[in-house]
Simulated scan of single mutants.
Amino acid sequence: MAEPRIAVLVSLGRHPVSGAVRWSRNDGAALALARRLGGASVAVLHAGDPDEPALRGYLALGAPCVQTIDVPRDRDVLDPLAALLSDYALVLCGSRGESGMGSGLLPYLLAQRLGRPLLPNVLSAQLAGGAVRARQFLPKGRRRDMEADLPALLTVHPAAPFEPRYAYARERAGRVLPVAAPAQAAPLADAWRIEPADARPRKLAAPERRSGRDRLLAATAMASRGGEVIQHGSPEDKARAVLAYLRTHNLVDY
């Protein structure tokens, strides 16, 4: 039985201190996981400028070649990626961009376009016949085992085991190759505005009215925080319940 074809989607990140463009740690973790699954025969794909020097960082991490799709900044990368990934049984990528205010929707849109299951926030994975088994990251130290039939997509969580081994010799020996692929204009390309990322918006949160002991117990135990789970009723009833909660805690003024 032939080994399944594996591909890794990589993007560009920024150094947390200097802000210099570099390889993305999240996608580097996805590359390390893919190499453990498929050895050295893993395809590495990037949609963007093929002349970007930072892409050579993935060569130093062990990718023998980085295939690049020259997609302008005002074009959508979804269709070109879907066209190239249709023949791959397993696609991996980081769970989100390393900097900026990215939506993190690309893996979900790609899975929808290809008609494949998506396993999010993966820490480890292994191939078992015609399926992939993965361990998923959950809050408060919890983990969950999942399985999906191939072909499938995986997003790798930032907490996945990853020890970068940067080798200058591999960087010089590897190649960055352009790949021809159709690029279609995004519907809202003319309305996009690119600007430096500012501070993240503050999340709405109800004020804490518990003692320090109660807050510590809530952080260390799976105790209820006083919320309400609404499983039945119409969407209008659920919306009224959410609005009533916001009004109770003075999070909205109407």
Rank of each mutant, 00 (worst) to 15 (best):
M1I: 09
P4M: 06
A7R: 05
V8G: 06
P16I: 01
G19F: 09
A20D: 15
V21Q: 14
V21G: 00
W23V: 06
W23I: 03
N26P: 02
L33Y: 11
L37F: 10
G39M: 03
V42M: 07
V44Y: 04
A47E: 06
R56W: 03
L59T: 05
P64I: 03
D70W: 05
V71G: 03
P72Q: 03
P72D: 05
R73D: 14
D76N: 13
D76L: 04
L78D: 05
P80N: 03
L84Y: 02
L85Y: 05
G100H: 12
G102N: 08
S103N: 11
L105Y: 12
L105S: 15
L106V: 14
P107K: 07
Y108T: 11
L109G: 02
L110Q: 09
Q112A: 15
R113K: 12
R116L: 15
P120K: 02
S124R: 13
A134N: 03
A134R: 00
A134K: 01
R135I: 12
F137W: 14
L138W: 02
P139H: 00
K140R: 15
R142K: 13
R144G: 00
R144D: 02
D149S: 13
L150S: 08
A152I: 00
L154A: 04
L154E: 04
H157R: 00
P158W: 07
A159P: 03
P161W: 09
P164N: 08
A169C: 00
R170K: 13
R172E: 08
R175P: 03
V176M: 07
P178N: 05
P178L: 08
V179P: 01
A180S: 14
A183Q: 10
P187Y: 00
I194C: 10
L204Y: 07
L204S: 11
P207T: 07
R209Y: 01
G212C: 06
T220H: 14
A221F: 04
G227F: 07
V229S: 10
Q231T: 15
E236M: 04
R240A: 14
A241V: 09
A244H: 10
Y245R: 13
R247M: 08
L251W: 06
L251D: 11
D253N: 12
